[in-house]
Amino acid sequence: MRKSQGFTLIELMVTIAVLAIVAMIAAPSFTDMLQKRKLESEVKDLIHILSQARSQAVLLKTNIVVGLNSSSSNTATNYFWKPQSEGILIKNIPDGHIAPPDIVFNAQGMYMPRHFVKMKRETNSEGDEIWVADQINIDGSMVDQLESYSRNIILCSKKLKVSKTINYSVIGTFDSIEEGVCS
């Protein structure tokens, strides 16, 4: 009798089991790789919008505002950007603010410094937690404390707990990207 050519059921089952084990091992790292690509894509997209805004400021010789965490339509003097990927957040939002402050490029293309009233949490008479201006006593009068918004933007992937910090120079040009950890 001639032996038939082909695979036995046991050989096929062992092969499928080995492939399933390899797939189970590879799946988490593949998911992480996709999340890293999403974060990198968001960083590149934000850098592109900021570069466009800076160029437009110089071209039109006027201030150009970039609103972050907003999906409004761009205009000649206002640009907007919001992460498109779920789980990517802007992290360095000053206390008491629900969104990051707008970024402004002046007519020379410089990244304008932003100053804000420093905020703190207090509990009101009803027991609710509220944000109020953090004040100090100077020469007998209460004055709001100011804080500066830095020239860097931190994007954080909640799933990976990895952040990318985009740094800009004083003259408004992209400087560097640093990788870090976010909570």
Score class of each variant (00 low, 15 high):
Phe105Pro: 03
Cys156Pro: 07
Thr31Trp: 12
Ser4Lys: 13
Leu59Lys: 14
Leu19Arg: 00
Ser150Lys: 08
Ser55His: 10
Val22Ser: 04
Ile90Pro: 01
Gln108Leu: 14
Lys161Gln: 15
Ile16Gln: 13
Glu126Phe: 03
Trp131Arg: 00
Arg37Gln: 14
Val117Ile: 10
Asn63Trp: 10
Arg151Ile: 05
Met119Val: 06
Leu68Tyr: 03
Ser157Trp: 04
Asn137Phe: 07
Phe116Trp: 09
Val117Pro: 04
Glu122Asn: 03
Leu59Asn: 12
Glu178Val: 11
Ala27Cys: 01
Ser73Thr: 06
Asn74Ala: 12
Ala133Ser: 14
Gln84Tyr: 06
Val65Phe: 07
Ile98Pro: 09
Asp45Thr: 12
Glu179Val: 12
Val117Met: 05
Cys156Trp: 07
Leu9His: 03
Leu34Tyr: 10
Ser4Gln: 13
Glu122Arg: 08
Ile166Met: 13
Gln145Val: 13
Gln35Asn: 09
Lys120His: 14
Ala17Met: 13
Asp102His: 03
Ile103Asp: 10
Ile49Tyr: 03
Ile10Pro: 02
Ser176Tyr: 01
Met1Ile: 10
His115Gly: 05
Ser55Thr: 11
Ser41Glu: 02
Thr173Arg: 12
Glu178Asn: 11
Asn69Phe: 04
Asp134Phe: 11
Lys38Arg: 15
Ala107Leu: 09
Met119Glu: 14
Ser176Pro: 01
Ala53His: 09
Ile64Ser: 11
Thr123Phe: 01
Gln135Gly: 06
Ser41Asp: 07
Ile98Val: 10
Met142Gln: 15
Leu59Met: 11
Phe174His: 02
Thr31Asn: 11
Val22Met: 07
Ile47Arg: 07
Gln35Pro: 02
Asp95Gly: 14
Asp45Pro: 08
Phe80Ser: 02
Ile25Cys: 02
Cys182Tyr: 04
Leu9Tyr: 05
Asn78Asp: 12
Asp139Arg: 09
Asn63Leu: 10
Leu160Lys: 04
Ile98Ala: 12
Gly127Ile: 05
Lys164Tyr: 01
Ile171Lys: 01
Glu178His: 09
Arg114Phe: 07
Leu89Pro: 05
Gly109Glu: 09
Ser71Val: 00
Asp175Cys: 09
Ser125Leu: 06
Glu40His: 12
Asn167Val: 13
Met1Arg: 04
Asp175Met: 14
Thr123Ile: 10
Phe105Asn: 07
Thr62Cys: 03
